[in-house]
């Protein structure tokens, strides 16, 4: 049995941010404890207004070795970017 607390990934939404961003990870005994630790470790300079904590082992991550088949095929397909349209002036800022 390991004496280490499990690892948690911490996501914080800042004062002006629309979405939570990954800020780092920490150890904690359970979700409540992770929330408090996240508050103390990552929001002490007034960085956030909302915190998500996710146990690291619950995250399914893509494998770095599968990089080729995963991401290369989307290269060179410029037509997927909506950059070929003229935006009428009266639409305003997009």
């Amino acid at each position: 049995m390991s004496n280490e607390w499990p690892l948690w990934e911490i996501f914080i939404r800042g004062q002006h941010g629309m979405s939570h961003r990954h800020v780092g990870s920490l150890h904690a005994a359970d979700a409540e404890h992770a929330m408090k630790n996240a508050r103390d470790v990552y929001t002490r300079r007034n960085e956030g207004v909302s915190i998500w904590v996710v146990e690291a082992e619950k995250i399914t991550a893509s494998s770095p070795s599968a990089k080729g088949p995963m991401y290369d095929p989307s290269r060179g397909k410029v037509y997927r970017h909506p950059t070929f349209y003229d935006i009428p002036d009266d639409v305003g800022k997009m």
Binding site: L26, H27, A28, N37, D40, V41, R44
Partner: peptide
């Protein structure tokens, strides 16, 4: 623990 260290300092 590092987390408790920071919490106590806070």
């Amino acid at each position: 623990a590092l987390e408790e260290d920071i919490a106590l300092a806070n």
